[in-house]
Design a protein around this nucleic acid. Structure first.
Length: 101
DNA sequence: GTCGTGACTAGCC
DNA sequence: CGGCTAGCCACGA
């Protein structure tokens, strides 16, 4: 394949519009591996930098934030700035904010 | 070529 | 609601 799995993950993250979010499983599915959510997280963890790759717009399928290389706390703050309402540890209008191509 | 690790998910108690 | 287990994938050493 021309590009690595990781690179593809970054590409999908970059495709997420501002103010919206996506889930690991959703991205994994887009790559053709619905069960590769773990690999997706790995790829984002190795992401080159921001805001080139909008990895902070990717959350867990249950609506939780998950983790973040810069700190989950920071991730929440960033999403809030984008206009995403987040509770103590989860997205509020998840299905309303999830980016579904 | 094998092992260990991790930003996950779904199911069960 | 909260915690635990097993399963899945890609990458680096």
């Amino acid at each position: 394949m021309a590009i690595n799995f990781t690179k593809k993950v970054w590409a999908v993250c970059s495709c997420i519009p501002k103010g919206k979010v996506s889930t690991y499983s959703q991205i994994a599915k887009a790559l053709g591996k619905p069960k590769a959510a773990r690999a997706v997280g790995n790829a984002l963890n190795k992401s080159p930098g921001m805001p080139k790759v909008t990895c902070h717009r990717v959350i867990k399928s249950d609506g939780s934030i998950g983790g973040f290389a810069f700190g989950a706390k920071k991730k929440i703050q960033m999403l809030k700035k984008e206009g995403v309402e987040i509770s103590k540890s989860g997205i509020i209008n998840l299905k309303n904010l999830v980016y579904y191509p």
